[in-house]
């Protein structure tokens, strides 16, 4: 655990340096392009986090092992944080490059809906007190929410194709140095995700133990 935290910290610093200093300035977009590195890295990890929610949810319903539920809950929370970062860093770039904070581009729209689905997941968890019921119901929602995402994406894509959009993101041909910076950032954020999930599941485990102890004290 200690080692994981150190490696992740080193990778984050390296990622920041490579992205902010080392990688060349974009010839057309300028310095604002540098937000691309953390943006893509957090986006990839948000998808990873929600996939882990799906896996944890299915595994919980099959095994009824609370560890899976704690993993799903932790991963959902971190996924929402990462998606929030994606939705904040994206507009900063978009304002400079596209001239608007927001456009109903399929990828943007799907990401926004994704955020709503998993915020809903967290609100749902908060609204159920019994631990086993909370785990069971949240798992069902975790599965349904994930299955729904591709359909959302298809529908949004179709919606956008019949409404012509003014602004389209340009194709990104990456300079080798930029690709290196991107990959290091993706790796660094993935390590950060792993650290956060490890900490968060431990916290979840400890607070469940505290709740159980408190229950025992009350009944004694």
């Amino acid at each position: 655990m200690r080692i994981l935290i150190r490696v992740a910290a080193a990778a984050m610093i390296a990622g920041l340096y490579l992205g902010l200093v080392w990688a060349p300035e974009d010839a057309i977009l300028g310095q604002v392009q540098r937000i691309f590195y953390p943006h893509v890295a957090t986006a990839w990890n948000a998808y990873l986090a929600f996939t882990v929610v799906l896996v944890g949810s299915i595994a919980y319903l099959r095994t009824r092992n609370e560890a899976w539920d704690r993993l799903a809950a932790s991963s959902a929370e971190i996924g929402v944080v990462f998606t929030t970062l994606v939705l904040l860093t994206g507009p900063i770039w978009a304002r400079a490059v596209w001239g608007v904070w927001w456009t109903w581009d399929p990828r943007l729209t799907t990401t926004l809906i994704l955020w709503f689905i998993y915020v809903g997941y967290l609100v749902l968890r908060a609204a159920i007190d019994q631990p086993d019921r909370r785990a069971r119901i949240a798992a069902v929602f975790g599965i349904i929410g994930f299955i729904d995402v591709p359909i959302v994406h298809f529908s949004v894509t179709w919606w956008r194709t019949i409404h012509p959009s003014v602004i389209r993101p340009g194709k990104l041909d990456l300079e080798p140095a930029m690709l290196v910076a991107l990959l290091v950032n993706v790796a660094a954020f993935t390590l950060l995700y792993a650290v956060l999930v490890a900490c968060r599941t431990r916290l979840e485990r400890v607070s469940a133990a505290v709740a159980a102890l408190r229950e025992r004290l009350r009944s004694a």
């Binding site: 809903g120 609100v123 729904d148 959302v152």
Partner: peptide, 12 residues
């Protein structure tokens, strides 16, 4: 809160 995000495909 739970339904509308999941309902997006139908809405569109």
């Amino acid at each position: 809160l739970l339904l509308f995000p999941v309902l997006v495909p139908v809405v569109i």
